[in-house]
């Protein structure tokens, strides 16, 4: 718990903002990041769903190789990959242990491994697509495939409000800490301390709920004056927003390569 406490002390808002910016915009200079969001969605529509229904080892291995390549191309942070790998191994591992316990044998290993590969392809595909889109691009992209305007508004609004909210939460949390008193006995495995911090993190939302309610009122009032009332459903506004989208040569090239690869892979999988 000392670790957590230290983290709390060091977690400065400035630091958090920097990390967020880096997460959101770190990878928007790669070749994949330059593609049109619609290209990426189309690509993802295949790689995000199809693996569920493919049971052919060769095809799956090919798909995995392909998505690993694209993931490398997006220069995604190692931390995200590490989290992904741990998650995949964890789930597979639990299932393996449990099924051995229920009288299974090592025969389950192969299908479980296959399942893990499928999950990996899908996850890598979503990392490829979504980590290389800046929030702005994702907003427009979502709008172009018919997601309601409120969603893309909310994404940008989220980036606007997050630092404000984090700062306020931090203030309130500090207020509770400084004016309250931490338990004197730490308890077994620091459980008293943990419980104290968890309690603070929950009740800190009380002041925040009230102050955010005040904010929300002004914001919605201001949105009204900014003409947003009918704009989310106005096709002319949508057209304006989408006017920056353009499918270029690189988009067709990317799709063509992917298509050729998949076709070749299926043929290969079918005959061998």
């Amino acid at each position: 718990m000392d670790y957590a406490k230290n983290m709390m002390d060091k977690l400065s808002i400035e630091q958090a903002k920097i990390e967020l910016l880096n997460t959101a915009y770190a990878n928007d200079r790669t070749a994949i990041a330059r593609l049109d969001p619609r290209t990426l969605f189309l690509w993802y529509a295949f790689f995000g769903i199809a693996p569920w229904f493919i049971h052919n080892t060769i095809i799956l291995a090919g798909l995995l190789a392909f998505t690993v390549t694209t993931t490398i191309m997006t220069k995604v942070s190692r931390l995200i990959l590490l989290i992904l790998i741990l998650g995949l191994l964890g789930q597979g591992g639990y299932l393996l242990i449990a099924s051995l316990f229920f009288g299974g044998d090592l025969a389950v290993l192969q299908p479980l491994l296959l399942l893990t590969v499928k999950l990996a392809v899908i996850s890598l595909a979503s990392i490829t697509v979504f980590c290389s889109m800046s929030p702005e691009k994702l907003s427009i992209g979502l709008l172009s495939i018919g997601v309601p305007g409120q969603v893309s508004f909310s994404i940008s609004y989220g980036y606007r409000m997050l630092p404000v909210l984090l700062e306020e939460y931090n203030h309130v949390f500090m207020c509770y800490r400084l004016r309250g008193k931490a338990p004197e006995k730490k308890g077994l495995l620091y459980w008293r301390m943990a419980a104290y911090f968890v309690k603070l993190s929950v009740i800190s939302f009380y002041p925040l709920l009230l102050s955010t309610a005040k904010r929300a009122r002004t914001t919605v009032e201001a949105l009204e004056t900014k003409g947003s009332k009918n704009a989310f459903t106005n096709p002319a506004v949508k057209k304006l927003k989408l006017s920056s989208l353009r499918m270029g040569g690189q988009d067709y090239f990317f799709l063509a390569i992917s298509f050729t690869f998949i076709t070749a892979l299926f043929l290969l999988g079918h005959y061998y």
Binding site: S156, Y157, Y159, R160, V164, R215, T218, T219, A222, L223
Partner: peptide, 15 residues
């Protein structure tokens, strides 16, 4: 507004 902060609704200045 007096609490003009809440009048800003997007992430970037130009936006």
């Amino acid at each position: 507004y007096q609490d003009f902060e809440n009048q800003l609704v997007q992430a970037r200045v130009l936006e």
